[in-house]
């Protein structure tokens, strides 16, 4: 994964509710976590829209919604669309 512009890539946990973007990369040393995220289709290039941050992270991915905890949300890097 090439990170071209650092400024516009943020971890999901730092997005504001309602912010949209595309998944830039999934960043984790934990293979199990990576597997889970992949199984849900959380992969670079997919459009993502953060809906809620507390008590769980809820986001729209394509046409479906998912909820994850903070640990998993921290693994997801998003390229913000302006």
């Amino acid at each position: 994964m090439q990170i071209k512009d650092i400024a516009e890539i943020l971890p999901l946990v730092e997005l504001k509710c309602g912010q949209k973007g595309k998944i830039a990369s999934v960043h984790t040393k934990n293979h199990e976590a990576l597997k889970k995220l992949m199984a849900m289709g959380i992969l670079p290039g997919i459009k993502i829209n953060l809906i809620q941050k507390f008590p769980s992270y809820v986001f729209q991915l394509g046409q479906s919604q998912y909820a994850v905890d903070k640990e998993l949300a921290e693994c997801i890097l998003v390229r913000i669309s302006t």
Binding site: G41, I46, Q63
Partner: peptide, 11 residues
Amino acid sequence: IDAKNLERMLP
């Protein structure tokens, strides 16, 4: 598959 989510279900 859920037709709405074709892109994510094709894999």
